[in-house]
């Protein structure tokens, strides 16, 4: 390509080297974008009517109204309780689940069932699960706890099963060589290797569950979310802001505790 002396052209290689494919990607991509933005039905009229509403919204939001303080802290406590119960339930159930879903330990039949359960539990956002449980079992923290336990179990089961699949086989073999039975092999060969990960995940799970527990109340599954939803619907935006601040504070506190504990464990 480069002859000595002669003027040589240099152009950066394109990201997609095949020019036909490149143009197809560009055209299809921009056509989709134009269509999708167009499909939003975004128009300035709505922006214009929306603006005063937004201004009104902010005016009503400030200052935050803490007069219903007891309602807020009851809601927050309920969220906390739901998160604690659901985390406890799911970290215990996650042990058999992850053993069943670990390819190096489980048998094929059990493995498939466990993995199917994990995929199912992980695919639906907690809110969707919550709405179904509320429809089935009525309002309150009970369907909320079920929701959090279900989704958390999927999360924990998957990560723990991966941790088990990545263990050092030599240690398991050594324990097996002593003549230990299946249960003792798990206890001495597997458990010590995944225990730090298990504890770390448990605390992370509490963090995740607390976040979710503050929100699933929107569909009636208990916790502070219900109060938030009601405040919005009664146009009490100052109360809504107070609740929102409370949520942000406990979420941040939990995140802080969780990351502190996890970094101490390492």
């Amino acid at each position: 390509m480069s002859d000595t002396g002669a003027s040589t052209v240099w152009k950066r290689d394109h990201f997609i080297k095949n020019p036909i494919l490149r143009w197809i990607v560009i055209l299809v991509g921009s056509a989709y974008l134009i269509y999708a933005i167009n499909d939003m039905n975004f128009n300035l009229d709505r922006m214009r009517t929306g603006w005063p509403r937004a201004v009104d919204f902010f005016q009503r939001m400030f200052p935050p109204d803490y007069s219903r303080w007891t309602m807020i802290y009851k809601g927050v406590f309920e969220s906390l309780q739901m998160a604690i119960i659901a985390t406890t339930v799911s970290i215990f159930l996650a042990i058999p689940l992850s053993l069943a879903a670990a390819a190096n330990i489980s048998v094929k039949f059990v493995y498939v069932i466990a993995r199917a359960f994990i995929v199912l539990a992980r695919s639906f956002p907690p809110i969707l699960v919550a709405i179904m449980f509320v429809k089935a079992f009525g309002f309150g923290p009970f369907p909320g706890i079920l929701t959090l336990s279900f989704t958390a179990l999927g999360f924990m089961g998957k990560l723990l099963a991966e941790a088990i699949e990545n263990i050092d086989k030599g240690q398991v073999e050594a324990v097996r060589a002593t003549g230990a039975n299946w249960f003792k092999v798990q206890l001495y060969g597997v458990a010590p290797q995944v225990l730090p990960r298990y504890v770390g995940l448990s605390i992370y799970l509490l963090d995740i569950n607390l976040r979710a527990s503050t929100i699933i109340g929107i569909v009636g599954a208990g916790g502070i979310g219900g109060a938030l939803f009601n405040a919005f619907h009664r146009y009490e935006y100052d109360t809504a802001l107070a609740i929102l601040i409370a949520i942000i504070v406990i979420v941040l506190v939990m995140e802080f505790i969780s990351s502190k504990v996890r970094s101490r464990l390492q």
Partner: peptide, 12 residues
């Protein structure tokens, strides 16, 4: 958490 949570046990 379990004692004070507001669960209506017949639901359960």
């Amino acid at each position: 958490a379990t004692q004070s949570v507001d669960i209506y046990w017949p639901f359960v």
